[in-house]
Amino acid sequence: MNDKSVSIDRRPWTKRPACCESRDPCIEVRDLSVSYGGKLALRDVTLAIPLGCITAVVGPSGCGKSTFVGTLNRMTDLVDGCRVEGRVELGGHDILNGRTDLIGLRRRVGMIFQNPNPFPLSIRRSLTLPLRRHGVRNRRILDGKVEGILRRVGLWDEVKDRLDHPALDLSGGQQQRLCLARALVLEPQVLLLDEPCSALDPIAGGVVEDLILSLRGRYTVVIVTHNLAQARRVADDVAVFWVRAGAGAMIEHGPVESVFDAPRSEWTAAYVQGVHG
């Protein structure tokens, strides 16, 4: 990334929403440490993720970005030998607590992965499966929701004639939008995006990025990216992660303008100016 691409202006129609000015926290993370099989991957992260805003998590590879995001809906539970310590509060509840209802948690906190992972089902069933499993049975309501959510992610016109075709026949960008639809259809409060555009070609990535921008205000979004230009374009807040003493750590966090234009840490300054890019 060179300087020019970093300094691209925000798009005019993506003004910071009012709720974001209030900076009410949606998720509060305190002293979060994660280790895999005894090896520390993330050390002592403390930050508050504001409600209704888009928070970008940036940093070089291996600095614990994805690990950090994975703790927010406890996907880390799926990894053998993974140990998480600290507190992650969502609506005043510590989700790392052993008694947390994981199914309820993951309904509130949706997630999109780097590689689109639609199920080997039809487009329609990809969306109705999670709805049915969470209590929607009525056929008419299901159809209405499928149409609504596909319109929301701009897929309706592209797929309305082949709703019963395999989702795996869609292009990569369409698949990623379908995955987004699949997560949004459950009406989560928080959406975690783990490098959602990096496996897509630039045009498809741009479409997904516009879609992410349109989520601002309605959802609290956490997006992992190592495309700094993208972070600058979409984010309200930026958290910079870095490898320090063999483990990932957060070295800077704040509103996007201050992180990019007046970084407090020299590493951040170097990083955003592309020295270590």
């Binding site: 199914i103 992972n117 199920f119």
Partner: peptide
């Protein structure tokens, strides 16, 4: 069955049986 299907199902808050019935067995 690819691991990404299981991750996707977990991220949607599907229960174990819903994952098996809805995703794993069709795959």
């Amino acid at each position: 069955v690819p691991r990404s299907y299981l991750q996707g199902a977990a991220a949607l808050g599907l229960s174990r049986w819903a994952t098996v019935w809805g995703v794993v067995l069709p795959a």
